[in-house]
Design a protein around this nucleic acid. Structure first.
Length: 290
DNA sequence: AATAGGAGCAACCGCGGAAAG
DNA sequence: ACTTTCCGCGGTTGCTCCTAT
């Protein structure tokens, strides 16, 4: 009856991952692709639960992950989506390429939540906490100065979802920050692609299976770049046939995570230019902490 | 220079739905 | 149809680093 046990609870290691463990996991997924997490620890030679492997991969080792703080545009998008989706972090993360649900969740709890509270906005309901607080929350001109602000969804356009439409739009109230983080043109385009069309955004709410909007855009662009090495090709250096990885895994940024153990270990050094290695090294500094 | 407190983030825990047998 | 397990998600914890005193 049923399936095999997920993993032997005895002897399963917990806590922070070591570089060696990361190497094993990356090496395994590079050659075998993502499948059957239950079998991964055993096959990869890891004393970890499959669940832990999946988490490590999706939150830290995945090829398409961005590093660093969310940009102002991304932050604004998170706020907008949270106003509509609530704490459905995975759904929100699906609309932000390179960001994980865990990352967004952490960023929400540590940054955005406080920011909204400071502005007199309830981070749960996106309603003003108090009328007075709301008045003094943010000068209108400061709000409108947000790069992404003009993309905000008009609440009235979605009465069905808009539980807070009776008051000022949460997304209108919470758009600005006092910091002057640089927002790139790409970020603005990101918001454009997602928020400019109310119908589009509504469809996000309706169709969970819809592919990531920005993913499609950015990955189409990436995939059109002939300079990018392809993961399967790299895996062939191991002399193994690799089941076709999802297209996202084709991004060369995946290899950045290999730096700790040396990209040469994978026979992938030919893939990088000096500039790319610089990026790799920067990324390494982050992973070295572990 | 030492230390306490806060902030940020990676990882774990537990639950629910889906799927295998 | 039912049991068992897998997978993914959201909430929470605890460690590490940073900053203020």
């Amino acid at each position: 009856m049923g399936r095999q046990p997920c993993c032997d609870k005895l002897g399963v290691k917990k806590g922070p991952w070591t570089a060696e463990e990361d190497k094993k996991l990356i090496n395994f997924i590079l050659t075998n692709g993502q499948c059957c997490w239950r079998a991964v620890p055993k096959l990869a030679g890891l004393r970890r639960c499959g669940k832990s492997c999946r988490l490590r991969w999706t939150n830290y080792l995945r090829p398409d992950l961005k590093r660093g703080l969310l940009t102002e545009a991304e932050e604004q998008l998170v706020i907008d989506l949270h106003a509509r989706l609530g704490n459905r972090w995975s759904k929100i993360a699906a609309r932000l390429p390179g960001r994980t649900d865990n990352e967004i969740k952490n960023h929400w709890n540590t940054h955005i939540k406080k920011k909204l509270l400071k502005m007199g906005i309830d981070p749960v309901t996106h309603d003003p906490l108090h009328e007075n607080n709301n008045q003094q929350a943010k000068p209108a001109e400061e709000i409108s100065s947000s790069p992404a602000n003009h993309h905000h969804i008009v609440p009235e356009a979605n009465s069905e979802e808009n539980h807070s439409s009776s008051s000022s739009s949460p997304t209108e109230n919470c758009s600005s920050t006092t910091t002057t983080t640089t927002t790139t043109a790409d970020d603005s385009e990101l918001i454009d692609n997602i928020c400019i069309d109310e119908t589009l955004l509504n469809s996000l709410l309706m169709d969970d299976d819809q592919p990531p909007l920005v993913d499609a855009i950015s990955w189409n662009n990436n995939n059109s770049n002939d300079n990018l090495p392809q993961a399967p090709a790299a895996a062939e250096n191991h002399g193994e046939t690799v089941p076709s990885l999802p297209s996202l895994e084709d991004d060369c940024s995946f290899l950045f995570d290999c730096q700790d153990f040396g990209v040469h270990d994978y026979g992938l050094d030919y893939c990088f230019s000096d500039i790319e290695f610089g990026t790799v090294l920067n990324s390494l500094e982050m992973t070295d902490k572990h």
